[in-house]
Protein backbone atom coordinates (compact mmCIF):
# COMPACT_ATOMS: atom_id res chain seq x y z
CA UNK A 1 0.00 0.00 0.00
CA UNK A 2 1.25 3.42 -0.87
CA UNK A 3 1.97 5.91 1.83
CA UNK A 4 2.63 9.18 0.08
CA UNK A 5 4.11 11.87 2.29
CA UNK A 6 4.63 15.48 1.29
CA UNK A 7 8.26 16.52 1.38
CA UNK A 8 8.67 20.02 -0.03
CA UNK A 9 7.96 22.27 -2.98
CA UNK A 10 9.85 21.31 -6.10
CA UNK A 11 11.32 24.83 -6.16
CA UNK A 12 12.96 24.19 -2.81
CA UNK A 13 15.36 21.82 -4.54
CA UNK A 14 17.75 23.72 -6.83
CA UNK A 15 17.99 22.26 -10.36
CA UNK A 16 20.56 19.47 -10.70
CA UNK A 17 21.06 19.44 -6.96
CA UNK A 18 19.66 17.65 -3.94
CA UNK A 19 18.12 18.17 -0.52
CA UNK A 20 18.47 15.95 2.48
CA UNK A 21 15.29 14.85 4.14
CA UNK A 22 15.21 13.48 7.65
CA UNK A 23 12.32 11.15 8.30
CA UNK A 24 12.55 9.58 11.70
CA UNK A 25 15.99 8.05 11.89
CA UNK A 26 16.40 7.78 8.16
CA UNK A 27 18.23 10.32 6.02
CA UNK A 28 17.00 10.50 2.46
CA UNK A 29 18.57 12.35 -0.45
CA UNK A 30 16.03 13.84 -2.85
CA UNK A 31 17.47 14.77 -6.24
CA UNK A 32 16.06 17.10 -8.86
CA UNK A 33 17.16 15.80 -12.25
CA UNK A 34 16.91 17.27 -15.75
CA UNK A 35 13.34 17.73 -16.86
CA UNK A 36 12.26 18.33 -13.25
CA UNK A 37 12.18 14.66 -12.46
CA UNK A 38 12.73 13.80 -8.80
CA UNK A 39 14.45 10.70 -7.41
CA UNK A 40 15.00 9.69 -3.82
CA UNK A 41 17.45 7.26 -2.25
CA UNK A 42 18.77 6.66 1.22
CA UNK A 43 21.48 9.27 1.83
CA UNK A 44 24.18 6.72 2.49
CA UNK A 45 26.60 5.29 0.00
CA UNK A 46 26.97 1.49 0.40
CA UNK A 47 30.75 1.91 0.23
CA UNK A 48 31.82 4.11 3.15
CA UNK A 49 28.46 5.69 3.93
CA UNK A 50 29.13 8.94 2.11
CA UNK A 51 26.28 11.47 2.04
CA UNK A 52 25.03 11.06 -1.54
CA UNK A 53 23.12 14.33 -1.49
CA UNK A 54 26.41 16.24 -1.58
CA UNK A 55 27.63 14.45 -4.71
CA UNK A 56 27.58 15.55 -8.32
CA UNK A 57 24.63 14.45 -10.43
CA UNK A 58 25.60 12.93 -13.77
CA UNK A 59 22.52 12.23 -15.87
CA UNK A 60 20.41 9.84 -13.81
CA UNK A 61 23.36 8.83 -11.65
CA UNK A 62 24.81 10.32 -8.50
CA UNK A 63 28.54 10.29 -7.85
CA UNK A 64 29.30 9.85 -4.18
CA UNK A 65 31.32 12.80 -2.86
CA UNK A 66 33.73 10.57 -0.95
CA UNK A 67 35.12 8.18 -3.54
CA UNK A 68 33.11 8.79 -6.70
CA UNK A 69 31.07 5.62 -6.58
CA UNK A 70 28.41 5.89 -9.25
CA UNK A 71 24.89 5.01 -8.18
CA UNK A 72 21.95 4.77 -10.50
CA UNK A 73 19.11 6.71 -8.92
CA UNK A 74 16.36 4.79 -10.70
CA UNK A 75 17.07 1.43 -9.10
CA UNK A 76 19.73 2.24 -6.50
CA UNK A 77 22.27 -0.06 -8.16
CA UNK A 78 25.96 0.77 -7.96
CA UNK A 79 27.76 0.88 -11.31
CA UNK A 80 30.64 -1.53 -12.01
CA UNK A 81 33.38 -2.15 -11.07
CA UNK A 82 31.92 -1.44 -7.63
CA UNK A 83 29.07 -3.47 -6.26
CA UNK A 84 26.13 -2.77 -4.01
CA UNK A 85 22.85 -0.94 -3.92
CA UNK A 86 21.01 1.68 -1.90
CA UNK A 87 17.39 1.78 -0.91
CA UNK A 88 15.22 3.83 -3.27
CA UNK A 89 11.95 5.56 -2.50
CA UNK A 90 9.19 6.12 -5.05
CA UNK A 91 8.50 9.79 -5.74
CA UNK A 92 5.83 11.85 -7.41
CA UNK A 93 5.21 15.51 -8.09
CA UNK A 94 1.70 16.94 -7.89
CA UNK A 95 1.06 20.65 -8.42
CA UNK A 96 4.70 21.45 -7.76
CA UNK A 97 4.80 19.49 -4.52
CA UNK A 98 7.19 16.56 -4.06
CA UNK A 99 5.89 13.40 -2.40
CA UNK A 100 7.75 10.32 -1.18
CA UNK A 101 6.26 6.87 -0.68
CA UNK A 102 7.35 5.08 2.47
Amino acid sequence: MSNWIKVCQLDEIPPAQARTVKAGDVMIAVFRLTGDRVKAVENRCPHKHGPLAEGIISGDDILCPLHNWRIHLEDGQVAAPDKGCVKTYPTKIENGVVFLDF
Binding site: R19, V21, A23, D25, F102
Partner: peptide, 16 residues
Amino acid sequence: FSEYKQIVIPIEVELS
Protein backbone atom coordinates in the same frame (compact mmCIF):
# COMPACT_ATOMS: atom_id res chain seq x y z
CA PHE B 1 22.01 28.00 -0.24
CA SER B 2 19.37 25.47 0.69
CA GLU B 3 21.85 22.59 0.70
CA TYR B 4 22.85 23.48 4.26
CA LYS B 5 19.39 22.97 5.64
CA GLN B 6 17.75 19.61 5.83
CA ILE B 7 14.04 19.05 5.49
CA VAL B 8 12.52 17.23 8.45
CA ILE B 9 9.42 15.14 7.97
CA PRO B 10 7.73 14.55 11.31
CA ILE B 11 7.02 10.85 10.89
CA GLU B 12 8.53 7.60 12.01
CA VAL B 13 9.77 5.52 9.15
CA GLU B 14 10.10 1.82 9.54
CA LEU B 15 13.41 0.55 8.38
CA SER B 16 13.02 -2.40 6.11
